[in-house]
């Protein structure tokens, strides 16, 4: 009784706060009216408008491309960083390395964005690169702020695994490269997957850093959404949010299925 009261009283207000805006947003994305107040009947018109919004779709494709590249890069660099932290007990500059790796987790977006833009401007005048800011510079920036998250996940995973596993592989005749491929990498795989997904999401969500380091002609989805939000929210954006929500829910359901299937196979 006591526990149920705590559950209801503790969770219900918070969950209402979290979900009410989203539920209303989904609902009104099907509203057949230009203005937001009042229900004017069910309609797909905003989804149709979304489908025909070339600028928005191009921005979405660009964002997906950037996110996939940035997530892959962040996973590779983050794997190396997590590996170093989890497996190399001592190395020169460990304290500085740890601090530098933790910095992107606490630095504000505006600071990361500004500093990277100033870097790109400086390298352009020094070595002529990057001549045009765009996908490449956004990807580099996104790798920088998300590699720390990957490193956290990888380090936590490796710290949880028995270091004797890698020694056992060496003991059984595997040279270091094979120890890495046959033991370390498979053990870190779940962390690499979730790190990749995290980096992908962070990249898709970023407005501020991309606004700084992007150049003319390369607008990511958040940049396009932001400029139209400046003009006011439209039901079309509600429809976009609903689509994202649906994709997210589907991804979760699939991940859940895979998890259940894997657990079943083990039993």
């Amino acid at each position: 009784m006591h526990r149920r009261a705590l559950l209801t009283l503790g969770l219900l207000p918070g969950l209402l706060f979290l979900y009410l805006p989203i539920i209303l947003l989904v609902l009104f994305s099907f509203n057949d009216a230009r203005l937001l107040t009042g229900w004017a009947g069910f309609s797909w018109r905003w989804y149709a408008a979304l489908w025909h919004d070339r600028a928005l779709i191009e921005a979405a494709l660009l964002s997906l491309q950037v996110a996939a590249l940035a997530a892959t890069g962040a996973t590779l660099v983050g794997l190396a960083a997590g590996l170093a932290l989890a497996r190399f007990a001592r190395f020169p500059g460990r304290a500085a390395f740890t601090a530098a790796l933790a910095a992107p987790l606490v630095l504000p977006d505006v600071l990361i964005g500004l500093s990277l833009l100033l870097l790109f401007v400086a390298t352009e005048s020094a070595i002529g690169w990057p001549h045009n800011r765009g996908v490449a510079t956004i990807v580099l920036a996104h790798v920088t702020f998300s590699l720390s998250y990957v490193a956290v996940v990888v380090q936590a995973r490796l710290a949880d695994t028995d270091p004797a596993l890698e020694e056992a592989a060496a003991d059984l005749g595997a040279p270091p490269w094979r120890v890495f491929l046959a033991v370390t990498l498979p053990l870190a795989a779940p962390a690499l997957l979730s790190g990749w997904l995290l980096a992908f999401t962070l990249s898709l969500d970023d407005l501020v850093v991309a606004s700084f380091v992007s150049g003319p002609g390369a607008s990511t989805l958040p940049m396009v959404v932001f400029s139209s939000l400046h003009l006011g929210a439209t039901p079309e954006l509600d429809a976009l949010a609903t689509v994202m929500l649906a994709i997210c829910a589907a991804a979760l359901a699939i991940a859940g299925r895979i998890g259940v299937a894997r657990r079943r196979r083990r039993l």
Partner: peptide
């Protein structure tokens, strides 16, 4: 090994 260190995968 004391922990056996069997490869779980």
């Amino acid at each position: 090994f004391q922990s056996y260190a069997l490869f779980p995968h």
